[in-house]
Design a protein around this nucleic acid. Structure first.
Lengths: 125, 125
DNA sequence: TTGATATATTCCCGATATGGAATATTATCG
DNA sequence: CGATAATATTCCATATCGGGAATATATCAA
């Protein structure tokens, strides 16, 4: 890799399972770090680090409350992601011709109707 | 990092802008690598490498056609992503109480109603 | 001030992604 | 078979991530 940051955008930020978990938790309520630590059951420093990434990307916002820091969701930055995937909605919305069925096949395994590719066979998933 | 693979899942796979671009192009039509190279205007090996990641994650499928390899979208694996972000839809759907307005403020900058945090100020985005 | 609690940051490390360049592989054609 | 087109893989180098552990910083209480 030689490009600028990486986790510098929402897409990268949510690639981390833990961060998605955090966002999920914050979607419910504004929470202090400690609650997240308890919920995630991972070392506090890690939580703080994940929160930092999320903060820098703008997916969460903080607010000091005494000696605690309450994190809340700041979902705006999630919209681009939503918008992007939404563009593919129709593909699994079935009844898009018989595309749904077709794609199901593809996922299932070797379609059989497909022309056998190179030798590097291995197809999709 | 010490966890298993990384780009091993759809979330990581789509974190790459180029890969999103590829998926976008394949959403339109089944395409040979070369067309992608032309469209993306990046070295062919890079395209192949991105395609490999997408293939391994199951986001695209291939089919040999002569000396070409036609890549097509295999969107099923994108659904989990869609489902996940969809859970946050309501947040920017406005009229969720006056949450919309509230969040807009948060994104805008310092709410003003917020208790000044630590010193590590820097808030959200 | 000292101590306790809550959270953030730093340092070290192994893993790995990604770009670039070169090369290998596969298939078609003559 | 030899040449060429299309695509994949490998090697190298660099950067960053993300975990672990230790430590720093901030806030509150006494």
């Amino acid at each position: 890799m030689a490009r600028p940051s990486t986790t510098a955008d929402a897409f990268h930020a949510i690639a981390e399972p833990r961060r998605r978990q955090i966002l999920g938790l914050l979607a419910t309520a504004e929470l202090p770090v400690n609650d997240l630590v308890t919920a995630l059951d991972i070392p506090q420093p890690q939580v703080s680090k994940h929160l930092r990434v999320l903060r820098e990307v703008g997916l969460v916002a903080v607010r000091g409350a005494g000696q605690q820091r309450l994190y809340r969701l700041s979902p705006a930055k999630l919209k681009p992601v939503h918008d992007w995937v939404k563009g593919f909605e129709r593909f699994w919305a079935e009844s898009f011709d018989r595309l749904g069925e077709y794609l199901a096949d593809l996922q299932a395994g070797q379609p059989g109707a497909d022309t056998p590719p190179h030798k590097t066979e291995g197809e999709s998933e």
